[in-house]
Design a protein around this nucleic acid. Structure first.
Length: 1134
RNA sequence: GCCGGGAUGGCGAAAUGGUAUACGCGAAGGACUUAAAAUCCUUUGGAGUCACAUCCGUGCGGGUUCGAGUCCCGCUCCCGGCACCA
């Protein structure tokens, strides 16, 4: 028997699966359409230059096991893979080297594909997608236009076509219908779900682009770590805030999402229900609204604070204060968000000179401005009082008077053990709930005592009269409840509290040192009480609890017209535009006469579904006669194409006449197999490269004599000379020419002649071809640029290309300029799961039939880092598409799982700079894909972070070898095939494997495999049926090994991938005999084996007979007997 | 500060309130071998003992229970997220 040769075995089966299209969902040989569907999705990767990290296969293996398991259970499983390929690394590389990002991306994708395929995942590669492919991002742009063409209807709480709003406005008497087209657009624009706004946004000076809130971490750019500044920029925004409530509500329906992720989204959306209070400003007609959740503190509101950006600041600042206020505002705007938040200890502000009237008690409140009040939350203004830490601190600093209006519901005293005699604890416990809160070396234990109000006086008396003792250093320590009630008890009048040092030291331990209540003036209050409690000094609301008082005060103020219920969200609108090159261009143009206009998608959804034939005759094509193919070598259209073809992105569309002849014609021009998608009379041909052959002389040194007529002849010849490459299609060179176009060249031999072939990616030439495209159709592809470098002024690099920027208006045909911003990386990933359901459809982003057949995603697996980015964005887009009728479910992902991180051996994060990155290629080479898969699943719980351990990896390799070696033994003959023990373990294994896969507990499933294998290993011969069952259970985990064993040792012809999953027999799970543990008073004192069916009485009898049990029972009185069937006998004795 | 999650042998870890440490790694000893590797067998929480018995052990302090890693109360520490959100 051969040794376990993982290299040969894995190669063999990967080739087999590829050739047989085993996992292609369209493959009707293996999949019947009658099966129930199951959609298993990985978060698709960004194909970085670094290649696959061992963290990637963790999630991919888990989903692969799940997919294979579901297939064996008879589901039709959709399990696709693709590339989230727009992104900064490729662009930054382009800036450095001039290599077009699509080239870098293509290379990286090739590498990723190789690596992922080497792990034997059962992806349906026929459905591969790439967000940078115009065929894909055409639909990203299309969805953007759906957002652009929609508004949020407040009554229905859903997105509706903007035209509906236009209609409504036309019928109103507001004069809307008399406005010019451009004026009308201006009125509608702010209502669109995608709208433009000049706003102070997060700007990364290093990436030179605006960022969404979700992309800023601690005031730093989450890509490069630079400090984010504020910049006023014209930005495209998406109205995600309109969906805040629905995004929040529907979280409740996601029962199979981790609580952690739901909580993060909840916090991010940040709903808070409160009251908007209106304050009159004294001496003017002006009012200021503030948002509060603590209306119960209104009676202690002694001042107002506005953010420096608040528009009313200018109006209400008195002449005397003008200078100070202006200076303050200026310095505040200069600060970055980071500076504003980092210096949170030191609050600053300025007095405006004006006063507002507290609507609750009519008192005058000075109005201040301060940058601790955020302009972006609530109304940008707050009323400030003694029961808020920040207000409290601010008031202390500027000597603003404070008032109390909340007293604690339960007095809580902090008592230091050291200050009490030893027997005090018992007495204190009688007062209320006593607990140790902390212990320090200096002070001993700190107890917290929570008591009812009625007992407070009694306690104070007790403490003062009985217990308080002098401390070693002469002071006296005492019970202190200042944290909750501002009461301070002085046991000894001699104790001085004005010693600052003592106060500081005490503070360190959470103690406040203060002065007695009757002497307290509020500026010297030591500690803020921010919790809810009982209202005091609050007029008719005195004595109410906070929560009870809030609605009552609100009703009272509302009657007076100065308050209203209000809901606020932390969620901000999504800043959607980026000033970068490598992203989807935003498909809009700005027309001088019509205003902003959408590029109309060529394939209108309904239009296409109703009649595909219309397509060829689309009136957007100026004339079909214009359609032609450009030979980029000549740079001029050769008008070769017959009348009935036109080019759209990467598609050549042949229509109407003699499509087959036309196809042959194009095949001469197109390298790569032509994918033909026939829809009635229209045929689509996908092409990637345009090529030309040039005959070469035998001697490569004579390249110079080559008769190439093209603008870059010299570069080509120079490269050929340098590269000296051999004749092989694998051996190609990619050149970047001076105009940034790229060229792939290879040398091939045909009929004993050498040819030089040059390939031009069509993508790069799309602009040259674009005059031939129907005007303003999707996809709007990226133009060829000279420089990828962002300008830094907040303008996209696309803005520097007049030929691209200047265009015509799709509405009026007049002069117009293109939108030059691109979309953020999140755009493409916000809907890709839909594209997988119908990845090749040229007519619609995902057909309703396919969406209904496959959607929603049943299992979605990826890292937790996307909790508030991708996962929130895609939920938002999905809901918009749902409102517009394009998808049938409210939520895109039914079940979500997050894999933990894989850390380096020392428990630190793997990183290039630390040099501790484990490359999966090395593991696959040394031990094989099955070992890597099994090991990563065995490491620990799926959702937990785990450290890599190379020797444990080897251990897993040995385990697989052990399985292989089992088959050195002969099988039992049919008639001797009875192995109760093995069968029991097998059935346990069947049960456990299934249960564990369902629960994502792959580590324990593998433990069970080991138990089974250890048991079989002890046998002389192999039980054939049991082994077959076991190999099936193993196959989702180690598919290559399983397939090989299946074929080689069981002589099976079909792939194991669609074998039915094993079922267990519950009766086989337990033994005939069971071991009872005998406990006396809860401690195990012995055990014995007995038949499963032994009656209870007999079991007790047997238990009592045990020598060691007798020992513990004799001389004791039996109190109770406990019987847990098949497990425990318990005796309780006295 | 707030919100999540966690803490079990030398290490990764397992345990519907029911014999804590399954399974693996590492380590030690043994078999096979000229030798090594590979493989197989044995041991492996601590104290104690010739061996048994017994006692102690799941971050800490309490509690409920015949019985607690698991449930309850009060803490400590670690990890993750949010953070001047009024």
């Amino acid at each position: 028997m051969d040794r376990y040769d993982h290299r040969a075995i894995e190669k063999k089966w990967q080739d087999f699966w590829k050739k047989e299209k085993t996992f292609s969902v369209g493959n009707k040989n293996l999949c019947s359409l009658q099966k129930p569907k199951y959609y298993v999705l990985d978060m698709f990767p960004y194909p970085s230059g670094a290649g696959l990290h061992v963290g990637h296969p963790e999630g991919y293996t888990a989903t692969d096991i799940f997919s294979r398991y579901k297939r064996m259970q008879g589901f039709e499983v959709l399990h696709p893979m693709g590339w989230d390929a727009f992104g900064l690394p490729a662009e930054n590389y382009a800036i450095k080297t001039g290599t077009h990002p699509s080239i870098t991306t293509q290379k990286n994708i090739e590498n990723f594909t190789r690596q992922i395929q080497s792990l034997g995942f059962s992806y349906d590669w026929d459905r591969e997608i790439n967000t940078t492919d115009p065929e894909y991002f055409k639909w990203t742009q299309w969805i953007f236009l759906q957002l652009y063409n929609s508004y949020f209807n407040e009554e229905e709480q859903k997105a509706k076509p903007i035209e509906e709003l236009r209609e409504k406005l036309m019928q109103e008497e507001s004069g809307f219908k008399d406005l010019s087209q451009k004026e009308q657009e201006k009125v509608l624009a702010p209502s669109r779900l995608a709208y433009e706004k000049e706003a102070p946004i997060n700007f990364c000076p290093s990436c030179k682009t605006g960022l969404a809130n979700e992309e800023v971490e601690n005031g730093k750019c989450d890509r490069c770590g630079s400090t984010v500044t504020r910049k006023n920029l014209r930005q495209w925004m998406l109205k995600i805030t309109k969906y805040a409530e629905r995004l929040l509500e529907d979280l409740e329906t996601l029962n199979n999402w981790p609580e952690k992720i739901k909580m993060m989204q909840k916090n991010w959306i940040g709903k808070s229900e409160g009251t908007e209070v209106i304050f009159r400003i004294e001496g003017t007609g002006e009012t200021v609204s503030v948002f509060t959740t603590r209306l119960d503190t209104i009676f202690s509101g002694t001042f107002l604070v506005l953010s420096p950006e608040h528009p009313i600041v200018v109006k209400i600042t008195t002449p005397e204060q003008k200078k100070i206020v202006e200076e303050y505002c200026e310095s505040a705007t200069k600060k970055s968000d980071l500076e504003r938040t980092e210096l949170q200890k030191d609050k600053t502000g300025a007095f405006t000179g004006s006063f507002a009237i507290n609507p609750a008690n009519g008192e005058k409140m000075p109005i201040w401005i301060a940058d601790f009040v955020l302009a972006s939350y609530g109304t940008g203004a707050v009323f400030a009082d003694a029961h808020d830490e920040r207000d409290f601190e601010f008031a202390k600093k500027y000597n603003i008077p404070l008032k109390l209006s909340i007293a604690p519901e339960y007095p809580i005293y902090t008592i230091i053990e050291k200050s009490l005699p030893e027997d005090a604890k018992q007495v204190l416990e009688d007062f209320g709930h006593l607990a140790v809160s902390k212990t320090t070396n200096n002070w001993g234990e700190f107890w917290t005592l929570r008591i009812p109000f009625q007992k407070e006086q009694e306690l104070q008396n007790y403490l003062q009269n009985t217990l308080l003792t002098a401390s070693e250093d002469g002071g006296a320590w005492y019970a202190d409840s200042i944290e909750t009630s501002n009461f301070v008890i002085y046991p000894h009048k001699t104790f001085q509290v004005f010693d600052k040092q003592t106060a500081e030291e005490a503070k360190q331990y959470g103690l406040s040192v203060g002065i007695p209540e009757n002497q307290v003036d509020f500026p010297s209050m030591l500690k803020c009480f921010p919790e809810k409690g009982i209202l005091v000094h609050s007029g008719q609301f005195n004595g109410m609890k906070s929560d009870e008082a809030i609605p009552k005060i609100r009703d009272w103020l509302q009657e007076k017209g100065s308050a209203e219920k209000r809901v606020n969200y932390k969620l901000r609108d999504w800043v959607f535009s980026r000033q970068r090159y490598w992203g989807e261009p935003i498909p809009l143009v700005h027309c001088e006469t019509c205003g902003t206009q959408a590029i109309s998608p060529l394939f209108e959804h309904e239009e296409y579904l109703s009649n595909t034939k219309k397509l060829g005759a689309s009136n957007r094509l100026k004339s079909e006669d214009d359609a032609c193919v450009v030979d980029p070598c000549r740079g001029t259209p050769r008008a070769l194409a017959p009348k009935s073809a036109f080019i759209l992105g990467e598609n050549i569309i042949l229509c109407k006449q003699k499509p087959k002849r036309l196809l042959r014609y194009f095949q001469n021009f197109i390298n790569a197999p032509c994918v033909i998608q026939g829809i009635s009379e229209t045929i689509f041909v996908k092409w990637k490269w345009i090529y030309r052959h040039f005959l070469l002389k035998e001697n490569p040194m004579t390249y110079s004599s080559l008769n190439i007529r093209c603008p870059w002849r010299d570069v080509v010849i120079e490269t050929l000379k340098k590269a000296k490459f051999s004749v092989s299609p694998e051996n190609y060179v990619i050149l970047t020419l001076s105009n940034n176009t790229v060229l792939k060249i290879i040398v091939t031999r045909r009929n004993d002649k050498l040819y030089l072939t040059t390939f031009y990616p069509l993508k790069v030439f799309s602009e040259k071809i674009s005059p031939l495209l129907p005007q303003n159709a999707l996809p709007l592809t990226l133009p060829v640029v000279e420089k990828y470098e962002p300008s830094g002024t907040g303008e996209s690099p696309l803005a520097t290309i007049p030929e691209w920027v200047n265009t015509t208006c799709p509405q009026c045909g007049g002069k117009a300029k293109r939108e030059t911003n691109t979309m953020p990386q999140w755009a493409g990933s916000s809907w890709y799961y839909l594209r997988f359901m119908d990845s090749k459809n040229p007519n619609v982003f995902c057909s309703p039939e396919n969406e209904q057949k496959w959607g929603p995603v049943d299992l979605y697996v990826g890292g937790a880092e996307h909790a508030v980015l991708h996962l929130l964005y895609s939920r938002f887009w999905h809901k918009v598409l749902y409102d517009l009728g394009y998808v049938s479910t409210k939520e895109p992902f039914t079940k979500l799982m997050n894999q933990g991180l894989i850390l380096a051996e020392d428990g630190t994060k793997m990183s290039k700079s630390l040099g501790n990155v484990v490359n999966p290629d090395e593991i696959v080479e040394a031990f094989g894909a099955d070992t890597l898969r099994m090991y990563e699943m065995f490491m620990g719980p799926f959702e937990q972070n785990k450290a890599w351990n190379t020797s444990a990896t080897e251990g897993m390799y040995k385990f697989l070898q052990k399985i292989w070696r089992l088959f050195e033994k002969p099988f039992f003959a049919e008639n001797e095939n009875f192995h109760p023990e093995i069968q029991r373990i097998l059935h346990q294994t069947i049960k456990k494997t299934g249960d564990d896969i369902e629960e994502f507990k792959f580590n324990t499933a593998i433990s069970q495999f080991m138990i089974f294998v250890n048991a079989v290993q002890k046998l002389e011969k192999l039980p054939k049926q049991e082994m077959k069952s076991f190999i099936k259970l193993l196959s989702p985990f180690a598919p290559h090994l399983a397939e090989e064993i299946w074929q080689q040792f069981f002589q099976e012809k079909q792939s194991i991938a669609y074998e039915p999953w094993e079922k267990y027999n519950p009766e086989m799970l337990t033994e005939e005999h069971t071991v009872y543990a005998v406990q006396v008073n809860g401690k195990v004192r012995g055990d014995f084996k007995t038949s499963k069916n032994t009656p209870k009485e007999e079991v007790f009898e047997q238990a009592k007979k045990l020598e060691n049990v007798q020992k513990w029972l004799t001389g004791k009185e039996m109190v109770k007997e406990i019987f847990v069937p098949e497990k425990i006998i318990g005796f309780v004795v006295k």
